[in-house]
């Protein structure tokens, strides 16, 4: 499978990359790992005239921790996140998410920024970003700006990233003491994308009452969404199985569930509830541990 002809650009820094984006506009696509883009190009579903490869731009990858957040460079591969000791000690759920993306080849080349900018509706990262309340740091001709995850995913493969911008960094806030988080997914039998994936993060006080909850649902609809009904049903409650079950029942509310070969609307909605329950149960267990 051969892609249509394109020009390849390898800018040496962000400024050069932004210059190319400004010049080439719609004709250009950013290459940030390429594990979604290249297959689409080979099938000629995507035919960009220019590829701007961020692989040689320094400073776009790596994981830094400050007291409040993990700052993950957009070009950080899934494998780097999966194997990072900083991630494992400060926000292990990110390593859990990374470990179930695709296969080792995908994890070694694919990047978190590439995934979040591509916004495949069945990608794994979006659920975690929503649950954890991440911020996207974009760089454009006018400098940097931050976009909260709730403003990021606009629709099917559509994000708040502007035409002349690139996604430079993802800031994921650390969870306070007494928190736990988990990601549970039902993988597509062929692609291993999420048919449904739910990430839950809960914070419990000393009495075991939930003070904060974040729940993101990916896979089922045209974009990943925050399960607001579930979160509301968790906060203020002691999270026993009955409370979790009741909250999880709202997991498909507000999701524009799409029927496809992997499931009817009914089945996928059901999976949202099942995996919400499983993720919350595990998150609560980890919060108590």
């Amino acid at each position: 499978m051969y892609p249509a002809a394109f020009d390849y650009h390898a800018p040496k820094n962000v400024k050069e990359a932004l210059g190319l984006l400004g010049k080439l506009k719609d004709d250009a696509k950013i290459l940030a790992g390429g594990h979604s883009l290249i297959p689409m190009m080979k099938l000629r579903l995507a035919q960009p005239k220019h590829l701007i490869d961020l692989g040689k731009v320094p400073g776009l990858s790596g994981i830094k921790a400050d007291g409040k957040a993990l700052a993950i460079g957009a070009m950080t591969t899934h494998w780097e996140i999966e194997s990072s000791s900083a991630v494992k000690s400060k926000l292990p759920v990110l390593a859990e998410v990374a470990s179930v993306i695709g296969d080792p080849a995908v994890r070694n080349k694919g990047t978190i920024g590439g995934s979040l900018a591509h916004a495949d509706p069945a990608a794994d990262w979006p659920a975690a970003m929503i649950a954890l309340g991440a911020e996207m740091v974009c760089e454009g001709p006018k400098g940097k700006r931050k976009v909260g995850v709730d403003q990021w995913f606009l629709g099917l493969m559509a994000t708040a990233l502007k035409e002349r911008e690139l996604l430079a960094q993802v800031r994921v806030p650390l969870l306070p003491a007494g928190s736990g988080a988990a990601y549970m997914k039902f993988p597509h039998p062929a692609s291993r994308f999420a048919v449904v994936g739910v990430c839950a993060a809960v914070t419990l006080d000393k009495q075991g009452v939930c003070t904060k909850a974040g729940v993101g649902v990916t896979g089922a609809g045209t974009k990943a969404v925050r399960a607001k009904g579930v979160e509301a049903a968790l906060v203020g409650k002691r999270l026993d199985p009955a409370a979790i079950e009741a909250a999880a029942q709202k997991a498909a509310d507000g999701v524009d569930v799409q029927a496809d070969l992997q499931g009817s609307v009914e089945y996928k909605s059901h999976l949202c509830r099942v995996f919400a329950k499983r993720a919350i149960t595990e998150a609560v267990k980890r919060a108590g541990a």
């Binding site: 297959p39 099938l43 597509h188 039998p189 062929a190 692609s191 070969l261």
Partner: peptide, 13 residues
Amino acid sequence: LVTGSMMDYALPK
């Protein structure tokens, strides 16, 4: 053919 690729046609793993 909607299962026309290895992303859609599920071979055993």
